[in-house]
């Protein structure tokens, strides 16, 4: 059964991951994608996948998570980007083809893509 072999792989991965973990959690980037009915119907699953693919392609390590509906259904898919010490930015109507530019501008160059912003939260304490 391939399953046992994969659990073996997992042990190795765990050891590799553990060492870097602390650093990443402290300085890392968090990306949150809305995954309510509204988000799913607007294509949020594909947007999330595009984000994962782009991060992998550019070898950027970020934590990507999903949440339910937050009430701004008309702007779905919604993507929040939070980086330590910076305001949390919410982008709206994020389609998969917008993801490369979003990652390039926001994560690599450090510029907020103003025309796609639908909300921002001040830096968390």
């Amino acid at each position: 059964m391939p399953r046992l072999k994969t659990l073996e792989d997992l042990k190795k991965l765990r050891e590799d991951a553990q060492g870097e973990l602390k650093v990443r959690l402290e300085t890392g980037t968090k990306i949150v994608v809305g995954m309510g009915t509204c988000g799913i119907a607007a294509g949020a699953r594909e947007t999330m996948h595009a984000i994962l693919a782009e991060l992998e392609k550019r070898e950027i390590e970020a934590h990507v998570t999903t949440v339910g509906c937050i009430g701004m259904c008309i702007r779905e898919p919604l993507v929040d980007i939070e980086q330590a010490g910076k305001p949390r930015i919410t982008y709206g109507n994020v389609k998969p083809d917008m993801v490369p530019r979003l990652i390039e501008e926001h994560l690599i160059k450090g510029n907020v893509v103003q025309e796609w912003v639908v909300g921002r939260l001040p830096t968390s304490p």
């Binding site: 391939p2 994969t6 659990l7 792989d9 997992l10 042990k11 991965l13 765990r14 590799d16 991951a17 553990q18 973990l21 994962l52 991060l55 992998e56 390590e61 970020a62 934590h63 990507v64 998570t65």
Partner: peptide
Amino acid sequence: AAIRRELGDVPISHPRIRSWLSEAIKEG
């Protein structure tokens, strides 16, 4: 649950773990 037990304090959302898991599901 079995995967989490194996991972201990490393979250499933860890970039390496999530790629591994996604591939494992696809292959299966």
